[in-house]
């Protein structure tokens, strides 16, 4: 406990508030991207429709389910430690990490296929025709959004690993599990970001 706090509870709630404020910042960060998406989609509706038809809906949908499940497993781990079961928390952490890695692997496969199909904005973009310009802008948005989301996932996996390590050291107990809760907020928020991106990328302009 830092010397500026009066109690552990005081510090815990400050940490939680800090994370929520950080998430508000994240809303604006990804929100700017959604703004760009809306702005450009309005100017190139046909191009965005064309591009959406070439997005990999199958992998995208599986990944959504994977991510939702990972959020579920981590929250289950949080419930476990709040009942004083650190072993269960560690198991939940590894389940979460596993699902996160599956998500990233599938994402990698998707990117690999996209690149193979020539869906890279630039001179060799494979979707030709009148709506090519709009479709390219869509794919810029697609790559920026998915890469940034994947970076958040990688940071999240690191944080969950850290939680598992501290849980093994016996840092958490029924009385005190603030870091688990803070990391849970972050992990679920990354989930929320994906739930916003998923319809925009794969469905909205279908």
């Amino acid at each position: 406990m830092h010397f500026q706090y009066s109690s552990a509870e005081h510090q815990a709630e400050s940490a939680m508030s800090g994370m929520w404020l950080f998430l508000a910042q994240e809303i604006l960060f990804f929100g700017a991207l959604v703004f760009v998406w809306v702005y450009c989609c309005y100017q190139h509706p046909a191009g965005f429709r064309l591009a959406t038809q070439h997005a990999n809906l199958l992998i995208g949908s599986i990944n959504t389910a994977v991510l939702l499940t990972s959020s579920f497993t981590f929250t289950a781990g949080l419930l476990a430690i709040e009942r004083g079961e650190p072993r269960r928390l560690i198991q939940a952490c590894f389940a979460t990490i596993g699902l996160g890695v599956v998500f990233l692997l599938l994402k990698g496969v998707e990117w690999f296929k996209d690149v193979g199909d020539g869906l890279v904005p630039g001179a060799h973009f494979s979707l030709t025709g009148p709506d090519s310009g709009g479709a390219q802008i869509f794919y810029v948005f697609y790559y920026v959004a998915t890469v940034l989301h994947a970076l958040h996932m990688i940071i999240g996996i690191g944080l969950v690993l850290w939680i598992a390590w501290r849980a093994r050291r016996g840092d958490f107990s029924r009385a005190w599990s603030t870091p688990v809760e803070v990391v849970g907020l972050y992990w679920s928020f990354v989930d929320v970001v994906w739930l916003t991106l998923y319809p925009l990328i794969y469905l909205a302009a279908l």
Partner: peptide, 27 residues
């Protein structure tokens, strides 16, 4: 649903609600 069930917003303090709402408002 994620915010309610996994992020447990209803357990959060008013302060956390304000922060979340501020993010949405400015978006």
């Amino acid at each position: 649903i994620v915010v309610i069930a996994f992020m447990r917003i209803r357990r959060g303090s008013p302060l956390m609600h304000i922060f979340g709402a501020a993010g949405l408002f400015w978006l």
